[in-house]
Design a protein around this nucleic acid. Structure first.
Length: 402
DNA sequence: TCTGGGGTCCTAGGACCC
DNA sequence: TCTGGGGTCCTAGGACCC
């Protein structure tokens, strides 16, 4: 039986979702005009999170600074994001996809793979995918692209063909015709650096890459990556659709300042802030971390980083923060202006720390109590937000159906 | 024009052990 | 005194994804 995989991708997800919300409030459809979703539009440092198709046609791209996009298109419509709403849209989208096949892998907030081998045949796959896409549009109000292929790679490549609101196939027999003429950059896992290396060697298309000998490719990108690129360029991929969500391997948070900071007090405040976020997140998932890392980014975007291993895994904010502070002292001269600070933890386990009361820092109990109060405050704030959100939704329903 | 925030995986070199 | 080879762990850094 042939494998049939669908990759379903929401078209300009955050922008489409924002458009649906705004239309419910009576605004025109921002998908039809040059528009973008960004962080705080007033912050000169914010970048574009999602762009409409008309905006993309003008050359506006995701991850571009908002100020730059405004120069390209002064009448650009800029809207802020709404994470609660995005989560709701994502859940609705995933649940429709799941109703087509239980073998579903969520790849990101707006993308998933489903294994349809049991549910359809190569002959009716396009019809089934079209039904799925129509159902999402009719029920949720936004469009998706569906890519169909014999493996995840081909399905994902196919969903990236013409957008929006399209179904494309990329069967193995179509690889030469549909995939090989594309530039190497269009292949999954080929980013800017790899593209540069390949084109410098005269490899411009996926087809050329597919036919390049393994020895030459290994010299260019390393043995392991070469093997993967070679397989992928030839349309081969045997990775399964993973239905289990993998546990996080690391948790991190970072803050970019509105201007570059040199005052150690400002840097420390930011470090404290991100330490609270990271430690709270790992406690919520009942993790403890054995490695703490921190980095600072200077205004020229160079990064200095440090990481350190702990004797015992911890979830205590103060312990994590103190390690980060110590490392900051080691990497920063105290003078060079800093643009961004970040803090992360890894080597996560669910083991509880071995209690060695004799050797334990007597302050730890105090720190833990501080964390408990912090978590409680966060939980209360979250509850209040949820309540307000539900109330708002109910009010909307009432006005819809008087 | 001036670049966010959150992740994963890989490689290379050094330390240390047998 | 100087030498080997393999394995594992750690840190630093880089590339990619959305």
């Amino acid at each position: 039986m042939p494998r049939i995989i669908f990759h379903i991708d929401v078209n300009s997800a955050f922008l489409s979702w924002t458009a649906v919300k705004l239309m419910r409030e009576g605004y025109p459809d921002i998908r039809l005009v040059p528009s973008v979703v960004s962080g705080d539009p007033n912050d000169r440092r914010s970048i574009i999170t999602a762009a409409s198709i008309p905006a993309k046609k003008l050359g506006i791209r995701t991850a571009q600074p908002v100020s730059m996009a405004l120069r390209t298109c002064p009448q650009l419509v800029i809207v802020g994001g709404d994470w609660g709403w995005y989560k709701e849209c994502s859940e609705g989208f995933i649940s429709i996809c799941r109703s087509y096949s239980p073998v579903l892998q969520q790849f990101s907030i707006d993308e998933c793979f489903i294994d349809m081998s049991q549910q359809c045949t190569p002959e009716n796959a396009v019809a089934v995918a079209t039904r799925l896409k129509e159902q999402v549009r009719e029920t949720l109000g936004f469009t998706v692209n569906v890519g169909i292929g014999a493996n995840k790679l081909l399905a994902k490549m196919a969903s990236d063909f013409e957008k929006p609101d399209k179904v494309h196939t990329l069967w193995e027999s179509e690889v030469k015709e549909k995939m090989w003429p594309l530039g190497v950059r269009d292949l999954l896992w080929v980013g800017k650096k790899t593209e540069e290396r390949l084109t410098a060697y005269g490899i411009n298309t996926i087809g050329q890459l597919a036919q390049l000998g393994m020895e030459s490719l290994s010299v260019l990108v390393g043995k392991k990556f070469a093997r993967q690129l070679h397989e992928n360029a030839n349309g081969r991929d045997n990775s399964p659709v993973e239905t289990e969500r993998a546990e996080a391997k690391s948790v991190s948070a970072e803050r970019t300042f509105s201007r570059d900071y040199t005052d150690p007090k400002d840097i420390d405040r930011a470090l404290f802030h991100v330490a609270c976020i990271v430690a709270h997140r790992i406690r919520r998932h009942d993790f403890r971390a054995s490695t703490v890392s921190m980095f600072i980014k200077y205004k020229d975007f160079t990064v200095a980083q440090k990481q350190t291993s702990l004797d015992q895994p911890t979830d205590v904010t103060a312990v994590i923060l103190n390690e980060a502070r110590r490392m900051l002292g080691e990497v920063w001269d105290g003078i060079t202006p800093i643009r961004q600070v970040g803090l992360g933890v890894s080597k996560l386990t669910h083991e509880s720390a071995i209690q060695m009361s004799l050797f334990e820092d007597p302050k730890l109990e105090y720190y833990r109590e501080w964390d408990r109060q912090y978590d409680e405050k966060k939980a209360k704030a979250e509850d209040a937000r949820m309540l307000a959100y539900e109330r708002k939704k109910n009010d909307e329903k009432k006005t819809e159906t008087p």
